[in-house]
Structures are given as C-alpha cells and as structure tokens.
C-alpha cells in the first residue's frame, strides 16, 4: 500500500513487515484491531493496519516524527475525525470498554463525554474560569448551582489549579498564564468525569516550568483516568508514560512498556529514533 505523506528528508530504512508488540500489563481499556484510516474517502491511508491495546489507568504515550499519524490515531478515540467530511476509518475496529465506537448505535456526543480531550494549544473559552470548568456539566443538564460549584472545585483541585485561582473564579480565563490555562483545560476535561483523557501534545506550547507542572499533574491523574498522550519529546514520554507506542509513516512500529522500549528497542527504526539519529 502506498502511503503519501509529508516525508522527512532522512529516512529510517526499510519498513518492518510486522510491528513488534511487547507484553502490556493491566486491564485493557481501548482495544484497536487492524485500524486503517483515510482522510480522503479511502484513496490513501493515513493509518495503516494498527493493532494495539491501551491499558486502564495507565499513561500511554504515542511518539513518532511529525506526520506519522499519531494525532490522527488519538482523534479516532473520541471520533473528532468525524468533523472532517471525507475522513473515515476504512478498516478495523476500535473498542472502548468493549464497545465498538463506530457501531451505528453509538452516539459520538455521548462517547466524547466519556473520552475527554486536551489540545496542543490551550483553548479556554472566552468566559470566566468558573464558566469554563462548569461548561461540560452544564450542557449535560446540571443546573443546580451548589452542585456545579462542587464539581468546579473538585475538578480544579484535580487539575492542581484550585489554590491558584480560588479567589478569582469569576475573572476571565485569559488572565491566567499559559501553563495555568492548559491546566484549566485539563480541569474542564475532567469536570465531565470521563474514563479516558486524550492529550494531544499538551506541553508543546508551554515553557519548561509549566511543562513540569503539567507532567506532575498527569502522573497524579493516572490514578483515576486512562491517559493517552501524544508527544514529541522522548524525554517526556520516558518520564511520564507507562507504555510507549512508536509510529512511523502511519504504521505502528513498536509498542511496549516504556522502560523496555527505551532500554532495549526491538526494531532498528525505533532505536534510531529514540537515540536521536533521526527526527
């Protein structure tokens, strides 16, 4: 199958015929089987035949060079790709908690309530801090002020932001620093009490100190949530993730426990990439 992508000038040699998948401990949360995905009605596949299982209440990092399809893969889990008219899964199934999320009786709106997302560039709404966090619960129909306050506080505490903003809940979210805004977005995502949180390069727009705080938060969150994170930084992946999947040109090359993958990569491409010979 031909894959047309924004190819890097350097290449990592021949594609392996099969991806290497190590043993992943824990209960499976997301189960992907032979997933292929296309942005143009199936003419060319952006993701090709990916099979991997993501365990519950662990951090799974997706790494790989730009354009390898890791963000696309992430967006499959909450069906954000549905917003693009010509994009579709051409093959395979994704099951979350055992349910095929592309089955006809699945409502993507309900799915997204269980699978939250944090974006690359922090994007709070132009509203107050309180309104930002309470937005999710509110559209789910919670109107009781007291209950909303409770949820907001819990979420902000959960996102390690409560102490910094508790005195100015009603001021605009834009008054916060970049790192605070990103944590606010995380608080907003956990306010709807999802099972899974998808993070699409959450620290790429932040400075090192803010990054450290967010990473700390992710380690905290993993106690309660299944986290899938796309990152460009291999250090970050090794610091915070339990498992790491390496993607290249739309294929899954290697997937293993983070410690194993970084210490003894099985594929040559993985080794080249993590040792910085490429990328």
């Amino acid at each position: 199958m031909v894959i047309e992508m924004n190819q890097e000038t350097a290449t990592l040699g021949d594609m392996p015929t099969e991806s290497t998948v190590g043993t992943i401990k824990g209960k499976t949360m997301i189960e992907c089987k032979n997933v292929s995905f296309s942005y143009d009605m199936g003419k060319t596949n952006t993701l090709d035949n990916i099979t991997l299982d993501i365990p519950e209440k662990q951090v799974t990092a997706l790494i790989g060079p730009s354009g390898c399809g890791k963000s696309t893969f992430l967006r499959c889990f909450n069906r954000m790709n549905d917003l693009i008219d010509t994009a579709r899964i051409t093959n395979g199934t994704i099951r979350i908690m055992g349910q095929d999320i592309h089955a006809s009786d699945v409502d993507p709106i309900e799915l997204r309530k269980r699978v939250g997302m944090v974006f690359q560039k922090y994007n709070p709404f132009p509203k107050s801090i309180f309104e930002n966090v309470s937005y999710g619960p509110r559209i789910q129909g919670i109107k009781d002020k007291k209950k909303l306050k409770e949820i907001v506080e819990q979420s902000l505490v959960g996102a390690a932001l409560w102490d910094e903003v508790k005195d100015r809940l009603n001021s605009s979210a834009f008054g916060l620093s970049g790192g605070q805004q990103q944590r606010l977005c995380i608080a907003r995502a956990i306010a709807v009490q999802p099972e899974v949180i998808l993070m699409d390069e959450p620290c790429s727009a932040l400075d090192p100190i803010a990054t450290a705080k967010v990473e700390e938060l992710i380690l905290e969150l993993r106690k309660n949530y299944t986290i899938v994170i796309v990152t460009h930084s291999m250090q970050q992946a090794s610091r915070i993730s339990d498992n790491t999947a390496f993607f290249y040109l739309g294929k899954l090359i290697e997937y293993d426990a983070t410690a194993t993958l970084f210490s003894t990569p099985q594929q040559k491409q993985t080794e080249d990439y993590i040792s910085g010979r490429f990328g």
Binding site: N78, M80, L83, I109, E110, L111, R112, K113, R114, G116, M117, F119, K121, N123, P124, F125, P126, Y135, G136, I139, Q140, C185, R188, A189, V192
Partner: peptide, 14 residues
C-alpha cells in the same frame, strides 16, 4: 477560533 469549537465538541456538546 476553531479551537473553541473543537474544545466544546470534545466535551460532548452537540
């Protein structure tokens, strides 16, 4: 910004 739309949809709003 399109980011607002994405954020809102990702929170499960119609």
């Amino acid at each position: 910004p399109k980011a607002y739309r994405d954020a809102s949809l990702a929170l499960g709003s119609t």
